[in-house]
Simulated scan of single mutants.
Amino acid sequence: MLTGQSFEHRKDWIRDRLHLLGACFAVAIHAYAVMSNHLHVVLQIDAAVSAAWNDEEVASRWIRLFPPREDTDEARDVKRQVLLADPARLALVRDRLGDLSWFMRCLAEPIARRANREDQCAGRFWEGRFRCQVLCDERALLAAMAYVDLNPIRAGVVERLDVPTHTSANERIDLARSGLSPGVVLYPVAGVLPVSLSLSTADYLQILDWTGRALAPGKRGRIDGQAPAILSVVDKDAQRWTMRVRGYSGGWARAVGCAQDLVDLAGRIGQRWLQGVRLAWMLS
């Protein structure tokens, strides 16, 4: 540490904020990794869900995000009643609770203000606006989750998945050890969308452990022999899977999926092609 001061506690701020946003926005947070100088989040957002919420639910969720300055039950109730009496404002808030840009804004701004108060300074905390990729299918989603969860291992911060880190993988491991994690399907680590993936938590962690070793074959202790059998459910073979995960470090760009999905998406947004189509053809 150049300054002699640790800022690790700020990772807790970000993790806790992600869980609060997951409880308020129409999202499912599938994976996250809070690193020393950047953040990865894999999420699904559905504006149709927030559009179906009743007025009281919308107001309550918004006030959880933006409580009154004097945060008492009485003050919250007053703010709720004011919002409920303003249909135009309520409609705007409803739209925001299903909007990715507002999700990221509600993540970044409070963290920046809190860090600035702690440092007694003003100015920008985050480098700039977020970048995002469209994940076209479940396999792309699982590969993105693996890439994100393995960030600390690839960066050399830890060597094993079960070492405490600010990642969704570590959160899943803790829940599994406590017996609180459902074993049948893989649910998001946070969020309100009623979604799940086709793997179990144990299957995902097994694939993740093997992938972490396979992506760094030159480092002692990271090489596993055979790929887990469950991996054949996700991809055609282990080599394709590792190429798919590794592609998030530069092979994929605006979207991830099969070649036809990328071709179709390029057409919808008026482009001739998207970066990653060649990789997608290789993996088909």
Rank of each mutant, 00 (worst) to 15 (best):
G123H: 07
V49W: 00
S249C: 10
R10K: 09
L2D: 13
V49D: 00
L141M: 11
R94G: 00
E56H: 06
A155C: 09
R80H: 05
L231W: 04
H30C: 08
R61K: 13
F7G: 15
A51D: 02
K236Y: 06
H19Q: 10
V234N: 03
A280F: 07
V49Q: 00
L135H: 01
R15N: 05
D86W: 05
L2E: 12
W210C: 04
R278E: 15
P217Q: 04
G156W: 02
L199V: 03
F66A: 14
Q81V: 04
A143N: 10
V189S: 03
D264V: 06
R69Y: 08
L141A: 09
D264Q: 12
I207G: 02
Q206L: 12
L150D: 05
F7S: 14
A229K: 11
I63A: 01
G4R: 12
D235M: 10
N116Q: 05
G98Q: 00
S249F: 02
A259Q: 08
E159P: 04
G183Q: 13
N151I: 05
V184Q: 15
V233Y: 03
R64A: 15
W281H: 15
Q226D: 15
S196A: 14
D137H: 05
V256N: 07
A253R: 14
S60Q: 06
A23N: 10
C121A: 14
L197N: 13
L97E: 00
A214G: 06
W53Y: 07
A91W: 01
D16N: 13
A91H: 02
N37E: 04
R64S: 13
M243G: 02
P228D: 03
L215D: 05
P152F: 03
V192S: 15
F66N: 15
D149V: 03
T72N: 12
Y147E: 10
N54S: 05
G257D: 07
V256K: 03
Q226K: 12
P164D: 06
W252S: 09
M282E: 15
C24W: 02
L18W: 06
G221W: 00
P228I: 02
E118Q: 14
R117Y: 08
A26W: 00
H40E: 05
V41D: 09
Q44W: 01
V189E: 02
L84S: 00
F66E: 15
Q271Y: 04
V195C: 12
V82A: 13
R80L: 08
I269C: 04
L90P: 08
G218E: 04
R220A: 15
V245M: 03
C132L: 07
V233E: 07
H9R: 13
S6V: 06
V263N: 08
F7W: 14
L208Q: 11
K236P: 01
Y147H: 13
R131T: 10
P217W: 08
L180V: 10
Q206C: 15
Y248M: 07
C258H: 11
A266T: 10
I63W: 07
L142E: 06
R17H: 08
L18T: 09
A122N: 06
L107F: 08
A26N: 01
V163N: 07
V256G: 12
L84M: 05
R61N: 09
A146S: 12
N170Y: 12
L175W: 03
L265F: 11
A33W: 01
S168Y: 02
H19Y: 11
W281S: 15
P164H: 04
S232L: 07
G247F: 10
E159S: 15
G123V: 09
H166D: 12
L205C: 14
A48P: 00
D137Q: 02
P164K: 03
E118N: 11
W241N: 05
A112W: 08
